[in-house]
Every structure is written in C-alpha cells, then in structure tokens.
C-alpha cells in the first residue's frame, strides 16, 4: 500500500507551504508532520516520514532528524486515546503522581504502555503550560484540568463509549 493524503489534505499542505516564502518549504515540515500523524493512525511510521519527505522535497534523514527530536511525534503506534499526564514540578505539587497511579488502577497501564484492547495509551510528559490548573493531562487536542478521580472515571467512560472513529 502506498500512502497518500486525500485531495483535501493535499490542499491543506499547499496552504501550509504558502505560509513561508518561496523556496522555504522545509519550514512546513513540523505542521505537515502533525497533519500526517493525525491522518495516518496517530503515529509516524518510516513509510509516512518518507512520504512527507517526498512531498516537501527533502531527504528522508531530514525528516527523521526532526521527527525524533520533538516529543509530540509518536514513532510507535499508540492507542486510540492517548492520555498524556504532566508530571513536572507544579503538577507534582498538586498530585500528578496520584493521577498516574489511579489510571494504572483503572486501566492497568503504566506510562509508556497501551491497554490490550488498543484503546488507551498512557504517557507522562513534562510541563504543558497548564500549571495553575493542575493536575492535568492532554487528551487528543484538549487539556483536561483540575483532575480528580471522578474526572478520570468520566473520561475513561466517555472514551470507552465512543464508536470506533478518530478521537480528534
């Protein structure tokens, strides 16, 4: 299977490239990788990265160098719902460790692990810029803040109830 963006997304790629002066399409790499990750199953396989390289006329290594540098790009498959719990100082002061422990209690996964049904992946991340609303996690596009056990319960319930479609 050779992969390709839909016509719509290709148009979006063109719009992204147009944000930068002519000949600077390498600048589009970060946004296009975001788009690719969203479109091709939540992670960047080598195949996807090579495709993006072709699209932006870059050497594949230029894409690998970038994709491996930034923490938001997943280089391995992840569950349908990625729960990224912030663990840095300010969140820790407000009980982020308890949140990670509670997710383990509920789902049986530790940071870096995915549930066997492929529904949830748990990750710990560093400060997401929501320190005043701690503890918090990122779920897909959104932040869940002022977390409590009840809020985790609700989140898990709503994710589990969702039909099989993209989470964003």
């Amino acid at each position: 299977m050779s992969l390709c963006f839909s016509a719509d997304k290709l148009k979006e790629v063109q719009q992204i490239i147009a944000r930068y002066p002519e000949g600077r399409q390498k600048s589009a790499l970060l946004p296009v990788l975001h788009l690719a990750q969203q479109e091709f199953g939540g992670w960047l396989s080598t195949e996807v990265m090579d495709y993006v390289a072709g699209l932006l006329q870059l050497q594949p290594i230029e894409v690998y160098e970038v994709a491996t540098f930034y923490s938001m790009y997943n280089l391995k498959p992840v569950g349908k719902h990625l729960l990224e719990v912030c663990q840095t100082g300010p969140c820790m002061l407000n009980g982020s460790e308890g949140i990670v422990a509670y997710i383990y209690e509920r789902l049986g996964i530790r940071p870096g692990e995915t549930t066997t049904d492929g529904l949830f992946t748990l990750k710990t991340v560093e400060c997401l810029g929501a320190c005043g609303y701690a503890p918090m996690l990122q779920h897909g596009k959104y932040y869940r803040e002022h977390l409590t056990r009840e809020k985790i319960d609700e989140l898990i319930a709503s994710c589990s109830a969702q039909p099989v479609s993209a989470s964003h």
């Binding site: 390498k26 970060l30 540098f69 938001m72």
Partner: peptide, 26 residues
C-alpha cells in the same frame, strides 16, 4: 502566520525557535 511547534521546551530559546521555524531540529 501561526507556526505550531511539536513538543520541545528548548524551542523557547530564540535561536532554537528560529531553527524550528525553518523546519529543523531545535
């Protein structure tokens, strides 16, 4: 124009930010 980073504190440092805006490692 808005340019989204991709998860790297170091890209707040101004020259790393510019590298990142150029589509490179920060």
């Amino acid at each position: 124009y808005v340019h989204r980073g991709a998860g790297a504190y170091i890209c707040g440092e101004e020259t790393a930010l510019l590298e990142s805006l150029e589509g490179k490692r920060g």
